[in-house]
Design a protein around this nucleic acid. Structure first.
Length: 482
RNA sequence: UCCCGAAUAGCUCAGCUGGUUAGAGCAUCUGACUGUUAAUCAGAGGGUCACUGGUUCAAGUCCAGUUUCGGGAGCCA
């Protein structure tokens, strides 16, 4: 019985005047006892339903409230009023689900994002979040399409891992051991032999190491899955559970890696611009109104769509870490002592430094390459021929305006001896990593890859400033609702 | 985790140097009206001023602690 319904997006696209259709959706507003703004989530636009005066009894009219779900049959007509091209002249209105107006928290008015975060189970029904999550979907789809078109294999790397050498922060423990009467060894430490996997296990912080194993057979793979970090981070760009895309390519160097990352980002933005124009238009306007509230000197120079167009049509700036440090040292900000943190070759650049490069100096996405080896992970390839004391690795970070680091990647160290040396220096347990090292023992090849934070990408494309507003149900320290 | 700020009606907020009965807009309810666009007009109901303790004749207001939220920083994607 429900198959007969027509989606509102399709109606607004095809405008089939005089067609008899049935629509189903939720009431956004009911004006004048006569006009229902109906939304079914297929688009951010509503379909106006016209209920002829006197057609419905008082008892039914009272039940058409904001949030109620309806099934309406009628005829599509050119709209008499302004504000929409077509409307549905109702012939039959059925209430599928009532919505108590006194208890329903969503009103036909502007709500704060903070309030909507507290009712995340209902916020999909708002214009803003409907739009954000349609774009999130479009980005996810575009990502799969991009890699599929290029012959990458989608590899499902494990979520539970026994490796603690991934080196990307605190991990969530996975265990079935009881809290009371935990089995102990003679020295008092926990006896993980009794645990489900017979060893200590955690949720993954990265699929990269397993991804590399796939690339050593398929040439190109990518992962796209959830990732977990038990960091006590309370910021607008961190989550305890987030999604990450990690391509890994054999026969690939840092240059190829950068080219792919840039093409990739431009491709998925273009996909959304083409397929979610209504959604982007809504967000563009939303952001423009928000900007108006700000003092003139804090307003961003570009609108959302303007910014996306710019990113799609311009090459990213590419500089080495050494050049980046020099730009910072030569900057007016440095000379006026505006930076809180020191700048010198060897530092791990702080947010203020990255923001200066991206937002003030270049005003576009910037790829920084060849970082000092001391501040980067063990698996990154050591560059040959460095100055003494200035050893660098073939790493690259893409920094985006307003977001910061959106991509982190590198060419991997494929030379067994150098990798072993590096692991020893960094106290990585070599014995436990033999499965990883085997790729270097048996037919090793130059390879590279990167990780893209999916939520940060959604933030960039939607202009949402808080990462908790671009994931359906955010997991952050002290918050695991819904 | 650190720094700063906030918490008053369902929502968004006002409430001054402490002083009668804590206000507004929107939402809700009742009624009117009907081609509306977050409809409009009239009226009504709605509050443990986050929590705990303290100062004071008197605390929404001052102080301390706790909780939660927001912004920034660190860690990072």
């Amino acid at each position: 019985m429900f198959n007969q319904r027509t989606k509102i997006k399709a109606l607004l696209q095809t405008t089939p005047i005089d067609a008899k259709v049935t629509v189903m959706g939720w009431v956004r507003t009911f004006r004048n006892n006569q006009f229902i703004a109906l939304n079914d989530g297929s688009t951010n636009l509503n379909l106006q339903i016209v209920v002829p005066l006197g057609m419905l009894g008082e008892d039914i009219l009272k039940r058409i409230t904001t949030g109620a779900s309806l099934k309406i049959a009628g005829t599509i007509a050119k709209s008499v009023g302004k504000g929409q091209t077509i409307e549905l002249l109702a012939e039959n209105v059925e209430i599928l689900g009532d919505c108590d107006a006194e208890k329903y928290p969503l009103q036909p008015k502007k709500h704060s994002l903070e309030f909507l975060r507290e009712i995340a189970h209902l916020r999909f029904r708002t214009n803003t979040f409907g739009t954000v999550f349609r774009i999130r979907h479009a980005l996810a789809f575009a990502i799969h399409q991009f890699f599929n078109e290029r012959g990458f294999i989608y590899l499902h790397t494990p979520i539970i891992t026994a490796s603690d050498a991934e080196g990307a922060g605190e991990m969530f423990r996975v265990t079935t051991l009881p809290f009371d009467g935990t089995p102990r060894n003679e020295d008092g430490s926990v006896n993980f032999k009794e645990d489900f996997f017979g060893k200590s296990t955690n949720l993954t912080v990265s699929g990269q190491l397993e991804g590399e194993l796939g690339a050593m057979a398929f040439s190109e793979i990518y992962t796209f899955g959830p990732t977990f970090r038990a960091e006590n981070s309370n910021t607008t760009r961190h989550l305890a559970e987030f999604w990450m895309i990690e391509p890994e390519m054999a026969f690939c160097d840092l240059e190829d890696n950068m080219n792919l990352a840039e093409e990739f980002i431009q491709y998925i933005i273009q996909y959304v611009m083409k397929n979610n124009a209504d959604d982007l238009a809504f967000l563009d306007q939303r952001l423009a109104e928000e900007e108006k509230q700000k003092p003139a000197n804090e307003r961003s120079e570009m609108g959302l769509i303007e910014k996306l167009n710019f990113v799609v049509n311009n090459r990213f700036e590419r500089i080495t870490y050494t050049e980046a440090i020099q730009i910072l040292l030569d900057s007016p900000a440095y000379k006026k002592k505006k930076f809180k943190y020191e700048v010198s070759w060897g530092i791990d650049m702080q947010s203020e430094h990255e923001r200066y490069l991206v937002e003030k100096h270049f005003k576009k996405p910037v790829i920084v390459t060849n970082y000092p080896a001391d501040i980067k992970a063990f698996y990154m390839r050591l560059n040959d021929g460095c100055e003494p004391g200035k050893q660098t690795v073939a790493a690259m970070d893409i920094l985006a305006p307003g977001i910061g680091e959106i991509v982190g990647g590198s060419q991997r160290e494929e030379r067994l001896e150098k990798l072993l040396q590096r692991m020893e220096n960094m106290h990585i347990p070599v014995e436990e990593m033999n499965w990883y090292l085997d790729t270097r023992r048996f037919g090793t090849v130059p390879h590279a890859g990167f990780g893209l934070g999916f939520e940060r990408m959604v933030q960039f494309v939607t202009g949402m400033t808080n990462i908790r507003d671009v994931i359906p149900f955010a997991r952050t320290p002290k918050n695991c609702n819904f």
